[in-house]
């Protein structure tokens, strides 16, 4: 009597919910800071100063325009 290894390849299109959650979080966070932030994120640390400086808005300014996000 002898034993052999047989390798089976299974295909699956199912994605764990945690992976979907991680990817959706990355989508929303990335879209927000590049396309929408008007000082909200840094205001968590800097307070009102962040709304006056608009650091992220200014740094991502050119891509906001180029990618079609509303800007000024």
């Amino acid at each position: 009597m002898s034993s052999v290894n047989a390798q089976i390849v299974k295909e699956s299109s199912g994605l764990p919910k945690i992976a979907v959650g991680i990817l959706l979080a990355i989508l929303l966070f990335g879209m927000f800071i590049v396309g929408y932030d008007q000082g909200q994120l840094f205001s968590l640390v800097e307070g009102q100063k962040a709304f006056d400086d608009l650091w992220m808005h200014e740094f991502y300014h050119d891509l906001r325009h180029a990618a079609g996000f509303p800007c000024h």
Partner: peptide, 22 residues
């Protein structure tokens, strides 16, 4: 700002790709 555009491209590309992958 032009340097920021490249950084923003990397971030926007990563976030759009997260949706694309799903």
């Amino acid at each position: 700002q032009k340097g920021g555009e490249i950084v923003a491209g990397t971030i926007l590309g990563t976030s759009i790709s997260a949706l694309f992958g799903i």
